[in-house]
Amino acid sequence: MRVLPDPDALDFADSVRDLLSDAAGSTALRGAWDNENGLIPGLWKQLAEVGVLGLTVPEEYGGSGADLTSALPVLVETGRAATPEPVVETLVGTAVLAAAGGELAAHWLPRVVTGDAVLTVAFGPGQLVTAAPWADLFVVRDAAGVRAVPAVDVARIDHNSVDTGRRLAEISYDPTAGTVVDGADAESAFDLGAVAIAAQLTGLADAMLEMAVEYAKTREQFGAPIGSFQAIKHHLATAYVANSFARPVVARGAFSVASGWSTRRRDASHAKYAAGQAARRAARTALQVHAGIGYTFEHDLHMWMKRTWSLTSQWGGQAWHRERVAAAVLDGSVEGQG
């Protein structure tokens, strides 16, 4: 296994980037913010067709059997496009079901890969669930371990989120509902999700910086593009460097998680923390560069900033991941999540 993705994974990310820029640009994203279910119509099926949904699912269930390292570039692209669809949740949920195997996997995975069934996950205590209104299966962590609960047995209360492109809900179900997933490793699933979100965050940071740089090149003040002033360009360069430094940390996190290394908890947390800090910095810098217009609903920037805020506080917040890294480094102990 390699730390860096192979050329096929990069070619695939190019293909997904083209798809997302054609089918899921900012106008489509704005539509998802405004419509009933928070999705871009038709996009899920397209993601299934090109192989995003089944990328890491074993071939016996119709997937491509790629590892997390190869999935990273695609996750970055879904971050860059601020894709509202539950790509990370699919990655984590399918990994849990595939690891368990048996009837549950055979029943659900082939349909998830083709986009005909949708699953979502909840791994943190009291964590709000995304994509709840249209999920067919909930893979959730509870006292019994990991439980797969069909949508029909789940009650939900929708919550407001700062990021309307990622709808959240609180769910409840009868403690005996659904099936306990045999031998599911909730901790590893959580780490997987943390790294996947980290990859999306680096993509979000890229997109926000690109927007800010573009704006700085066209917006003029004092007779010159504002990007020519050090007060602007140095900020942008610092944010760019921070994101560039986060990328290898995310690659390392993915490698550790995919290889089942003993440092995987620490590395996953480091990835989420570093990418989160870089993305928050990119958001703050982009907002400052855009100044007044960046605060408006009419400008696209807010959709990317709000996704950044929402993702940095989910799958473990910044402080939680930082503490987990500190614990691992200082006394070698790594607390599990929850």
Partner: peptide, 13 residues
């Protein structure tokens, strides 16, 4: 035009 799928990219080699 369709977008190259992951399986398509693998098969192309």
């Amino acid at each position: 035009p369709r977008y190259p799928s992951f399986k398509g990219i693998m098969a192309a080699k």
